[in-house]
Design a protein around this nucleic acid. Structure first.
Lengths: 160, 160
DNA sequence: CGTGAAATAAGACCCGA
DNA sequence: TCGGGTCTTATTTCACG
């Protein structure tokens, strides 16, 4: 925690461009490269920065469909949940999964190449361990995807 | 969109580490740096690679809550949708938003620092243009977030 | 935190299959 | 058309002040 103004600026810039060179980054926050790199490395080792990713255009690489699947389990024991979660982790077309409040237990975000591909995935989800019920909602259009986290507010105070 | 094997390998590697240097990338796919860089640049300009992002730990930077908000509008005209979508784009705590099939019209993913922050955001969403109805589901735990897209299957054929 | 220097990478250019 | 080599410029990275 304890993110100061400078660190917050760094994180914001790296969220928008993860390939910013250290010298550019340092320039933009009016710092010299050495301390800037030190801060970045520290935030990496503390896990604030989990990693760097190329963001791809889903449609252009062949995934024309994004589907949200809500799953209810018929058994809420720890081992049932674990089995289900492990299976979900192994499914590459599931790109995010949350245990949630509400009517369903889990909500999955799934990418599919086309309708037949979606059908295959849906059947696969239906046969995962302890699945009772499934509801699918198709993403018709993306308004906003994976926007950067708003750090400006979170940069209020420093430890010392 | 004609992705060949080599391009697919590049995309996969860059999804896992967006800061891979070109020489490392080239080594891992058994190519020399020059053609490797050419391919990367080409995929960037074609929009296959949309950009590079640092991935941050939501909780560690102060967002203890992730909430999925389903929104229904009371007016489905084009202008009503546009007004709502523009407002959503402007809300920084909304990190993704989709127009979806199903009972609700839109599905928002929202990050909040704490319960009071969430309350503030919820009220803000309630007052967005043409909002009729809202349902919130809290993310209790993340099983998987923003996993890389599974490219291995999508690399089947080439244009020529 | 800033400066400087050695190691490394990026990016433009040309060559050959 | 695409992979490979080379050179120049820029960047990374780490000593030290």
């Amino acid at each position: 925690m304890d993110i100061n103004k400078t660190d917050s600026q760094i994180l914001t810039l790296l969220q928008y461009d993860g390939r910013l060179s250290n010298v550019e980054l340092a320039e933009q926050i009016n710092l010299s490269p050495s301390p800037c790199l030190r801060r970045v490395k520290q935030m990496e080792s503390k896990g604030l920065i989990q990693g760097y990713r190329a963001t791809l255009d889903r449609v252009k690489i062949g995934f024309s469909m994004t589907v949200f699947i809500e799953v209810s389990l018929n058994n809420h024991s720890g081992s049932a949940s674990s089995a289900f979660e492990a299976s979900v982790l192994a499914m590459q077309n599931v790109i995010s999964a949350y245990l949630t409040s509400g009517a369903a237990d889990y909500r999955l975000e799934v990418v599919a190449e086309d309708l037949p591909d979606y059908e295959r995935i849906l059947k696969e989800v239906q046969t995962l361990p302890h699945v009772k019920d499934i509801h699918s909602n198709f993403a018709i259009r993306a308004i906003k995807t994976a926007a950067p986290l708003p750090l400006t507010k979170a940069s209020g105070k420093t430890k010392a």
